[in-house]
């Protein structure tokens, strides 16, 4: 049996953190309980619903399937940091205008997952968008509005890029 507690160093939303964590603690509990980063939510704790999606070293990951100790040396970004930095602002705005959220519980995870797709560039088909968010459960919207908002953002970003290149 290994150590019950471990010392870890990581960067959360651009802030360097040193912490002693229980070895069994998940990243999502660590973020929410120890740092008050309650924007990432707990929906199922078995990796299906996607409400706890955060970025670990730039890749979308389930906060409930990763232990905090596994993030030693990693860079973790949550909805709070991504919102403050402004990188999601157009996507968030599209979600608001399109009413692509109702209760909002899935939204932080949905935005981070969508951003991962959008960051690859181009305008994905609606089918491709639906496929990419297939691991994010939304009980309220029926997904149509979410797909609209992601598609609108992709088109807007593409036309901005085209304008810049012209």
């Amino acid at each position: 049996m290994g150590e019950r507690f471990c010392d870890i160093n990581l960067r959360i939303n651009g802030e360097d953190i040193s912490a002693r964590v229980e070895a069994r603690k998940t990243l999502i509990d660590f973020l929410r309980d120890d740092f008050g980063l309650t924007g990432s939510h707990i929906g199922c704790e078995h990796g299906v619903c996607g409400a706890c999606t955060v970025l670990i070293d730039g890749a979308a990951a389930r906060g409930c399937l990763v232990l905090a100790v596994q993030c030693d040396g990693a860079k973790v970004d949550t909805i709070e940091g991504l919102s403050d930095s402004g990188v999601l602002i157009d996507l968030q705005d599209a979600f608001i205008r399109r009413n692509a959220l109702q209760c909002g519980f899935c939204t932080p995870g949905m935005l981070i997952t969508a951003q991962e797709l959008l960051s690859r560039g181009g305008v994905p088909s609606r089918e491709r968008i639906r496929d990419h968010i297939s691991g994010n459960y939304c009980r309220c919207t029926g997904y149509h509005a979410i797909v609209d908002a992601i598609e609108l953002t992709a088109k807007a970003r593409e036309s901005t890029r085209a304008g810049r290149d012209a």
Partner: peptide
């Protein structure tokens, strides 16, 4: 009219206040 909901901005920023968040 399709007026946008006033509470959406904070929910998209992870600034909701669900009971799960209450301490």
């Amino acid at each position: 009219r399709s007026v946008p909901r006033p509470n959406l901005a904070r929910l998209t920023q992870g600034r909701g206040q669900y009971v799960s968040d209450v301490v």
